[in-house]
Each structure stands twice: as C-alpha cells, then as structure tokens.
Amino acid sequence: MSYDSLRARIERVAEIATNLTNDPNAPKYHHVVPQSYIRRWTPGGKGAVRSVRIDDGRGKLVGPRKVGGVEQFYRLEADDIDQTSTPPLVVEVLLEVFDKLAKVRIDELLAAEPGPVTDVEMKRDLAMVVAAQMSRGQSFRQEQLDLLEYASRQDPIEHSKVAARIWLLSTGQSLDDETIEVAAAQMREKDRRSLISQDHKPQAIQLMMQNFTKLIVPLITRNWAVYCTQTPLLTSDDPVVVIGGPSTDRRVKPGNASAAVWIYPIDRHRLLAFFRPGISPQLPFVLDAVETYEINQEIVAAAYEKIFEHPDDDIASTITVPPWPVVPRAETVVELSRRPTRWFESAELPAAPVSRWYQR
C-alpha cells in the first residue's frame, strides 16, 4: 500500500466514520480479531469456529460475526470530545481497512511455499496489519488502563520532573534545576495539548494508535519466515505472541525489541514468525507435532480470555495453563513495567518453544 493510497483511505475512513456517527445501524460489536481471520479456522471458510474459555474450558460453536469482539470497544466518546472533529467510530472504521488488507496479504502468503518472507511490499503491508493486531486487543487495553490509573495517582509536577530528568540524561543535556524545571513544564504542556480526552478509555485508544505506529518499523526489520505444521494450530483473542527466548524470565512478559521471536498463526497449518535481527529462520520450515504443541501452548498462555479452534480439532482440551495471576496494584514504574504472564506463580516453567530457533 503506497503512502498516497494509505492517505486516500484514511480520508475515506474519516468520511465513513462521520456518516456513521448518528446511524442507529452502526456496528456495535467491535472485533479485536478480524472476522476474515477467524474464518480461517472454520470449515471451508464458512460455518462456525469453536470458541473456548481458557479458565474453565467451556467451549461452544460460534459464527465469526459474534466471536472475538467486545461491544463498543473502539468507540471514542466522552463529554470533552467533539464528535464533528473526532467521529466516535473512526478507529473501528480504520481497523476495517487493515482487516481487508490482512485478508489479501495472508491469502498471498498461504498460496506460496513456506520459508523466508523477503518481499518488501508484503512486509510493509503486513507489518501494519500485525502492529495493529498487537495493539488492538484486550490485553494491551488493560495495560494502558493500568498505566493511566498509575499516572493519575502521581503528583503531576514531580512525575514530569522525573520524566524530564530521564530525557535530559539520555540526550546528554544539563541536569541543573532550572533546565529540569523548564523541560518538565514543556512536557506537562505537551501532554495537556496532546490528550484526546480526560477520560481513560479514549486515552487508552489514543495510546493504542500511538503504539501501533511505533511497532511497524521494528517489525519490518525483523527476519520473517512462514512455517507449516504437521498438526493443526489454534489461535486466540490475542494472536500475536512475543517470545523472549531461552534466557528470559518466563514469569514476566518480554520486551518487544529484545524478544527472540514474535509469532502469528495465519491459518490452521501456517505460522508466521518474526525473528530478532541476528537470528536467522531455521530449516526445515516445517514444525513437527511436538513443536506445534509447544507453539499452541504458547498461544493459549498468551491469550487474554479465549482461544479459537477448528470444529474438527480438539487442541484446547489437551493444553492446561494457569489463570492470570492477581497481583497488587503497581506502586512504582518498575512494578508497572513487569507485566506478569500466566506462569508468574508457577514452580515449573515451560521452556521457550521450538528450541532449534535459538541455536546459532
């Protein structure tokens, strides 16, 4: 997708979203994973998918239109938001653009042989799709709400001084009191002017869009490869999974930049993997039954609430993971940044999946 094409689509998005503002038939059920994506786990792209709740194992067959979403999840609405300049459904409509792009590009990947992905346009387009998927789900939303709640408990002046001191130190500037005061005041003013609203939900959606743009270049610069699997894959309501690697603490979420590999199931038997620069995709580009089980376990463990599988498969019942741990409210930036995984309180931690990926 060229820059001019993307700009034209964004302008069209704004027009569509404006027209939907007062439309009683406007979409209310907002998908955190696209319908077209979920259909890849239905028989022949039609019918139902099995949706399974991880914590209690309860499953049911559901059509793609009513699975993988939350009511009004992306609706931008607050007393201090002008609907004429910021239509409530602008984000939902924008995500539909990426959903259509995803269908086209993933179809092309599935038509090709497994192996490295080097096509520049393919990587550029799918990087936008994957970055959007990483930012649009309930897990990321909760992280942003936690961040906003933490920030609301801090003294704004002292908080800005800490941020200013960190920024001045990282850029090699003076750390005298006057310079810190000026930089902190500028940061507070910038934050005030840049906030879309004082309400946390619109702020979280705004942070989602900012995070999405920051992920695109790091994604493109990774080494991509498609792997096929000997046994079926499942997927989830948070299908892009970040794997730190064998040397990282499995009890906390790894950082995106340092993680060895990010994975994204693109259909029942294909997995798209993004390796950190310096790690080359390993032959063969086929995952055996054990490796596929490890990947499925990783997908289940990273899911927010639900997994989705083909009705003919019975993968969910073979994988057990702990529930999300209940942790105390973060009182420091360090505590806030150490996001726990489902393995946070486990005595035995699973090894990072597909051990051959990390061998030099």
Score class of each variant (00 low, 15 high):
5 S>D: 15
8 A>W: 04
9 R>L: 08
11 E>Q: 08
18 T>R: 11
20 L>T: 07
27 P>W: 04
32 V>W: 09
40 R>I: 03
47 G>N: 07
47 G>V: 06
52 V>Y: 02
57 G>E: 12
60 K>R: 15
63 G>F: 08
70 V>D: 12
71 E>I: 03
79 D>T: 05
83 Q>M: 10
83 Q>V: 08
88 P>G: 02
92 E>P: 00
98 F>K: 06
99 D>R: 03
100 K>M: 09
114 P>Q: 12
120 V>Y: 14
123 K>G: 01
140 F>V: 10
143 E>S: 13
144 Q>R: 07
149 E>H: 13
150 Y>P: 03
152 S>E: 03
156 P>F: 13
162 V>F: 14
164 A>S: 07
164 A>C: 02
167 W>N: 15
172 G>R: 01
173 Q>I: 09
174 S>K: 12
176 D>H: 12
178 E>M: 09
184 A>F: 02
186 Q>N: 01
187 M>G: 11
192 R>C: 01
196 I>F: 02
207 L>D: 12
207 L>E: 13
215 L>F: 15
217 V>A: 15
219 L>Q: 02
221 T>L: 14
226 V>R: 04
227 Y>E: 02
229 T>D: 06
230 Q>R: 11
230 Q>I: 03
234 L>P: 05
235 T>A: 02
235 T>W: 04
245 G>W: 11
252 V>H: 08
254 P>A: 12
261 V>W: 05
265 P>H: 11
269 H>D: 14
269 H>Q: 13
272 L>I: 00
273 A>T: 04
279 I>K: 14
279 I>G: 01
280 S>Q: 15
296 N>M: 00
297 Q>K: 06
306 K>H: 15
309 E>D: 10
312 D>R: 07
313 D>S: 03
317 S>M: 09
320 T>P: 08
320 T>Y: 13
329 R>Y: 05
333 V>Y: 09
337 S>W: 10
342 R>H: 06
343 W>K: 07
343 W>V: 03
353 P>R: 02
355 S>A: 15
355 S>E: 15
357 W>P: 10
358 Y>A: 09
